[in-house]
Amino acid sequence: MGWLDSLKHRARQLKQHTLTVYFAARDPRTPLLVRLLALLVAAYALSPIDLIPDFIPVIGYLDDLLLIPLGLALVVKLTPPEVLNSAREQAQQAADKPVSYGAAAFILLIWLLLAWLLVRWIGAWVGAD
């Protein structure tokens, strides 16, 4: 197994853990503080603002490579086992669902159309000055 296969495997594992934490956070049996921690980890993972900006070589991605997995691990550790088992089952079912490439292509076309319209609007606005 090459480094690319290993990287793909790790990415699938991270996706699986993220889905598990998502479903655990939505479960009413999960303690409130754990739910809040899960929300913070997800918000940080999706936020464009980092503690260390990504444009700083090497160190910029270090916070993403450490904080997000550590946050996910902490949420998993603090989640009650019965909730975690249920969340893992839900995450597995969600991951096993087929991917709709047609729907993805349609959404991509909408985004491209919106980007094209935005560029035209900005061009007309700048040209009007």
Rank of each mutant, 00 (worst) to 15 (best):
L37P: 01
S6T: 05
G60F: 05
R12P: 03
A45I: 06
I52K: 11
D50V: 07
E82R: 03
L65S: 10
L113G: 15
Q13L: 06
W125D: 15
H9K: 12
A38S: 09
K97G: 05
T79Q: 00
L113Q: 14
Y44D: 15
L46I: 10
P57E: 10
A104H: 07
L33K: 06
A94S: 09
Y101W: 13
W121G: 10
L14F: 09
A73T: 02
V41R: 01
A103G: 10
L112Y: 01
V41D: 13
L118S: 15
I122K: 02
A73V: 01
V83E: 01
T30Q: 05
A94G: 02
A95S: 10
Q93I: 11
A124T: 12
I68Y: 00
R12A: 15
A25Q: 00
L70C: 11
L65P: 08
T18W: 00
I49E: 14
K97V: 06
W111N: 15
G60M: 02
R29C: 04
I56A: 08
I110H: 12
L7D: 06
L70Q: 07
V34M: 06
Q16P: 02
Q13K: 06
T20V: 02
V99E: 08
G2I: 05
L108A: 14
D129K: 06
A94E: 13
H17F: 07
D27F: 01
W121L: 14
W121M: 13
L32N: 04
F55I: 12
L37N: 02
M1S: 10
L62G: 06
A24K: 00
A87T: 02
W121T: 14
L7M: 08
L78V: 01
P69G: 03
R10Y: 06
R10F: 08
L51F: 13
L4M: 13
L112F: 07
A43S: 13
L118P: 11
L114V: 11
I56M: 09
R29T: 07
P80Q: 01
S100F: 05
T30C: 06
R26C: 12
H9I: 10
F23K: 03
I122L: 13
F55E: 14
R29I: 06
S6I: 07
F106N: 10
Q16V: 04
L51N: 14
Q92S: 15
I122R: 02
K77Y: 11
E89L: 09
K15G: 11
L46N: 15
V126T: 05
K15I: 08
L67T: 04
L33Y: 02
G71Q: 00
V34A: 01
A87K: 00
D129V: 09
L118C: 13
P69A: 02
A91V: 01
L37Q: 09
L108C: 12
S86E: 14
I122M: 05
S6N: 14
D64Q: 07
L36V: 12
F55L: 08
L74E: 01
L114D: 11
K97D: 11
L113F: 12
A42W: 08
L84A: 00
A42M: 05
R26N: 12
D5A: 14
L112R: 05
H17S: 14
Y61A: 12
A91F: 00
P57T: 04
L108R: 10
D50M: 07
S6D: 13
A124F: 08
S47H: 05
L32Y: 07
A11G: 04
L62C: 04
A105K: 06
H17I: 04
Y101H: 15
L39Y: 04
P31V: 13
D27P: 01
